[in-house]
Simulated scan of single mutants.
Amino acid sequence: MEKVAFALDMDDDWPPVATEHVWCDRAGTLYELGNVPFFIKGLALGDRFSAMPDPANGCIFEFSLVEASGHSLAWIIEPDGLALEPYKEEMFSLGLRIEGFSRFQLHAVDVPATADAGAVNALMDRLEDAGFAMAFPVWRH
């Protein structure tokens, strides 16, 4: 595995970083995403994609999905006064994997292809109803 840099498009100061580095297996111009991204739209854990890093800075600006893994990706922001912690046991029991970026109160949630879609969707609805800010950059469930 190697770290791969993605250049990010910013809109209204979001995301709060200009690049995101993720782990990938690579064979030439074919990559397989090895971790859950926080800011890259259109890719979920295990997706295979093709890309050409920019020769000047090594960042990937564009990619093409070659093979979808079946995983979904959710981004959850904890607003002041709310914590995701009370929900984590249920999330883990559904097979979800959670990565945290505490500086921005942001969580990237991997939903494996094998997860119960009805149970996951019900949980995501409850989180939204509770007041969490949610985004679903890759939703295959």
Rank of each mutant, 00 (worst) to 15 (best):
A56G: 12
L43A: 01
A115P: 09
S93L: 08
F92R: 14
E128I: 02
T114S: 15
A44N: 04
R103I: 12
G58V: 05
A83W: 05
G81H: 03
V36Y: 03
E67F: 02
V66T: 12
Y87S: 15
D129W: 08
G131D: 07
P55A: 07
R103T: 11
P79L: 05
I40C: 00
A130N: 10
E89S: 15
F104N: 14
D47G: 07
A119T: 08
A108V: 02
A68P: 13
D54K: 05
L123A: 05
C59T: 07
F49C: 04
V66K: 14
W75E: 11
K41W: 04
E128A: 11
Q105I: 08
F61H: 13
D47H: 01
M91N: 06
G131L: 08
F38L: 09
I76V: 15
G95M: 03
G95K: 06
A122R: 14
D80V: 10
E99H: 12
S50G: 09
I40M: 00
A51K: 01
N57Y: 01
V111R: 08
L106G: 09
A83D: 11
D47A: 04
I98T: 06
A122I: 04
L73N: 02
A108N: 06
F39Q: 04
L94I: 07
A122E: 12
F49V: 03
M52C: 15
P37E: 03
G118C: 15
T114D: 13
P53K: 03
A130R: 10
N57A: 06
L82K: 07
L73Y: 00
G131N: 07
P55K: 11
V66D: 15
G70F: 06
H71C: 14
V36G: 07
G58A: 08
H71Y: 11
A83P: 08
E89P: 12
Y87N: 13
E128M: 08
A56F: 06
A113M: 07
L84I: 12
S102I: 10
D54C: 10
W75D: 07
A51C: 10
L94F: 06
D54A: 04
L82F: 09
S93Y: 09
N121Q: 15
F61T: 12
P79N: 04
S50E: 13
A56W: 01
M124D: 04
F101T: 06
G46F: 01
E78S: 05
F61R: 14
D129F: 10
I77R: 14
P86E: 05
P79S: 05
L65I: 08
I76W: 02
I77M: 15
S50V: 08
G58R: 03
G46R: 00
W75H: 12
S69M: 09
W75F: 11
A119G: 14
L106Q: 12
R97G: 13
I98R: 09
M52H: 12
I40D: 00
A56H: 05
A44Y: 00
D110K: 01
S72I: 07
H71W: 14
G81K: 06
S102N: 13
A122K: 08
E67Y: 00
D80W: 08
Y87G: 05
I98V: 10
I76A: 10
I60F: 03
I98M: 09
E90Y: 04
A108E: 05
D80G: 13
L43D: 01
L106M: 13
